[in-house]
Amino acid sequence: MSKICIISTRPPYGSTAAKDALDTALVSASYDMDTSLLFLGDGIYQLIKGQQPEGLPQKNPGAMLQALEMYGIENVLLCREDMYDRGLQESDLTIPVQLLTRKEIGTWLTQQDRVFNF
C-alpha cells in the first residue's frame, strides 16, 4: 500500500489551498491509501477550535477535520515548534494530533512514497 503524506501550510481562509489539501487527503484515503496529513506553518490555524468565519466566502474546516477519522486517516501530524511559535497549545486544537519536531518530520517524510504540498 502506498504511503501518502499531504502537507498543509496555508491558513484556512484567503485561498482554497487548505481545502484542497483536506480534499486530497480524503480522496486518497477513500481509495484505501495509507494517508497522513501534516500541518506546518500557518496551516496549523486550520485546527483551532471555535472558528467563526461568518461573512467570509469560505467554510470553517472543522467539519472536514472531523471526517478524517471516518476515512481512516489516523496520522494527523503537527510541527511542535510551529505550534509553540504561534502561541498555541494542544488544548486549542479541534482534533487530536501527533506532535513532531522538525527533525522528526524530516524522518517521517523519508518514509512516505508520495508527498503533496499545499
Rank of each mutant, 00 (worst) to 15 (best):
39 F>H: 13
18 A>I: 01
17 A>F: 01
47 L>P: 06
111 Q>N: 08
81 E>H: 06
55 G>W: 05
90 E>M: 10
76 V>R: 07
37 L>M: 15
77 L>A: 09
69 E>H: 10
7 I>H: 05
86 R>V: 03
53 P>M: 11
100 L>N: 07
21 A>Y: 06
112 Q>W: 04
5 C>G: 01
80 R>I: 03
32 D>R: 15
60 N>S: 08
40 L>W: 13
108 W>L: 12
53 P>I: 11
6 I>E: 04
99 L>A: 15
101 T>W: 02
84 Y>S: 14
40 L>E: 14
32 D>N: 15
21 A>K: 04
47 L>E: 09
69 E>V: 07
113 D>N: 11
30 S>Q: 09
84 Y>M: 10
20 D>L: 04
82 D>R: 08
114 R>D: 00
88 L>D: 06
8 S>T: 07
22 L>A: 06
39 F>E: 10
67 A>P: 01
63 A>M: 02
116 F>W: 05
41 G>T: 08
35 T>S: 13
87 G>R: 02
99 L>H: 12
31 Y>D: 11
40 L>K: 13
19 K>P: 01
60 N>D: 14
25 A>T: 14
81 E>C: 02
93 L>E: 09
83 M>V: 09
77 L>S: 10
20 D>S: 10
25 A>R: 11
79 C>V: 10
61 P>K: 01
9 T>E: 09
64 M>A: 11
112 Q>C: 03
62 G>N: 02
3 K>G: 00
80 R>T: 12
95 I>K: 05
10 R>V: 03
69 E>Q: 11
43 G>K: 07
85 D>C: 07
24 T>C: 15
46 Q>M: 03
101 T>C: 00
113 D>C: 01
70 M>K: 12
29 A>H: 13
2 S>V: 04
47 L>D: 08
52 Q>D: 15
95 I>Y: 05
2 S>E: 08
73 I>G: 09
97 V>G: 12
56 L>R: 13
31 Y>F: 15
52 Q>S: 10
13 Y>G: 02
34 D>T: 04
32 D>H: 13
79 C>R: 09
97 V>D: 11
14 G>P: 02
100 L>R: 08
102 R>K: 02
100 L>I: 08
95 I>D: 04
104 E>P: 01
109 L>Q: 14
77 L>E: 10
4 I>Y: 05
36 S>A: 15
116 F>P: 00
48 I>K: 09
110 T>C: 09
36 S>Y: 08
38 L>Y: 11
76 V>G: 08
55 G>Q: 06
31 Y>K: 14
29 A>C: 14
6 I>A: 05
60 N>M: 02
4 I>D: 02
29 A>I: 11
97 V>W: 13
26 L>Y: 11
115 V>C: 04
116 F>K: 02
42 D>R: 03
1 M>L: 05
42 D>Q: 07
10 R>K: 08
8 S>F: 01
108 W>C: 12
3 K>R: 05
80 R>C: 01
11 P>I: 04
36 S>K: 15
23 D>M: 12
83 M>L: 15
118 F>P: 00
88 L>R: 05
91 S>W: 05
72 G>P: 06
101 T>G: 00
19 K>A: 14
71 Y>L: 06
62 G>K: 00
16 T>H: 06
85 D>L: 08
23 D>K: 13
8 S>H: 01
39 F>I: 12
